[in-house]
């Protein structure tokens, strides 16, 4: 990696042989006697959508703050785009972008003024801003709304504007901390289309989310729990390697009565509502078949139980992992 001056714009690099976008070894952060991030190792390849998952308070945001150079680790190394971000946070700041669930937009400024503000933060030359502005407005579908006050935009529009502002300087790596929190399903889908577009242009995306359907859209995932990485891999690797349970899906009109019955059954490890049906989690080697469970439910007097085995979702794996590491 050559050390180029920070103010020279460059296109995102697609070189597969390049150093990973992010490389962490033993990264640790403590607050008083609380260890928020506990010696994590992680490599994020370039050009990928990388999902960083974990329960609330497990260290996701703390990790991102160390990677963006806003928080100093207690120990360990963090290389971001080939730069030691602990020693040289300023060398990487112009090459990365950041967007959180709290969009950092000025509500009393127009769309255009917000974009201009962020271009100013990154000292974007005028001609480069003109080109980027054009791209961002088209991407975010904000053409014709340049002069609207940001506060008058719906959440979906604001979210796309925030993404536009976070990418106005064409970063090579974009951190997205719960970018779709509280956004409606249609707007979430449109937002993910934009993320795919960025990824296809070679931008590396580091995303945290609590929507497990979004996690399945990522190329790779890492699960962090109590400051430690407890699993990582592609979504299908995660599903096949970290699931030591089977899931039985039960459709019944008696959801309220069947749920406590399942919770009390000895060979059912966990039972929960999944959409309109119930899921019973059993050990991988449990002899309990869908037919056997149907029979037992019918014998217990429940009407029309319909039981099928279903593949584990990323959400099932998430819950399973947390339960095992508790």
């Amino acid at each position: 990696m050559t050390d180029r001056p920070d103010d020279v714009p460059r296109p995102p690099e697609k070189d597969a042989g390049a150093e990973p976008a992010i490389s962490l070894r033993g990264l640790t952060k403590t607050f008083g006697d609380f260890t928020a991030v506990d010696g994590i190792d992680l490599d994020v390849p370039r050009g990928q959508i990388f999902g960083f998952l974990g329960p609330n308070g497990s260290g996701k945001t703390t990790t991102i703050r160390m990677l963006t150079g806003t928080l100093r680790p207690r120990a360990g190394t963090a290389r971001v785009l080939g730069v030691d971000v602990v020693r040289h946070p300023d060398r990487v700041k112009r090459r990365i972008g950041y967007m959180s669930q709290k969009f950092a937009l000025f509500e009393d400024m127009t769309v255009d003024e917000n974009l201009r503000f962020y271009a100013g933060v990154y000292d974007l030359p005028a001609e480069r801003f003109a080109a980027q502005r054009e791209y961002v407005l088209r991407m975010a579908d904000l053409v014709g709304r340049e002069d609207e006050l940001t506060r008058n935009l719906s959440v979906g529009w604001r979210q796309r504007l925030a993404l536009g502002a976070a990418t106005i300087h064409s970063p090579e790596l974009l951190f997205l901390d719960e970018p779709t929190s509280g956004v409606d399903p249609v707007a979430r889908r449109q937002f993910w289309d934009l993320l795919y577009d960025l990824a296809s242009r070679g931008v590396t995306l580091f995303v945290t989310t609590h929507y497990m359907d979004e996690a399945a859209h990522c190329n790779r995932l890492a699960f962090i729990y109590r400051g430690r990485i407890i699993a990582d891999g592609s979504p299908s690797e995660i599903r096949s390697e970290h699931m030591d349970q089977r899931i039985l899906d039960i459709s019944t009109p008696d959801v309220d009565a069947v749920l406590p019955w399942l919770e009390a059954a000895d060979d059912v490890q966990e039972a929960y509502l999944s959409g309109a049906s119930l899921h019973a989690v059993v050990a991988a080697d449990s002899p309990l078949t869908p037919a056997a469970l149907t029979g037992r439910l019918a014998a217990a007097g429940f009407a029309r139980p319909d039981v099928v085995e279903v593949p584990a979702t990323i959400e099932d794996v998430f819950v399973n992992l947390v339960a095992r590491h508790r």
Binding site: G54, P55, N56, Q101, E178, S181, G182, H210, M212, D256, L259, Y272, L273, E315, F318, V319, V322, A323
Partner: peptide, 17 residues
């Protein structure tokens, strides 16, 4: 449950149930 993780979301809906 906006911003709430999947494990807690399940707990939360168990409470609602």
């Amino acid at each position: 449950t906006t911003g709430v993780d999947p494990v807690s979301r399940r707990e939360f809906w168990r409470i609602l149930a």
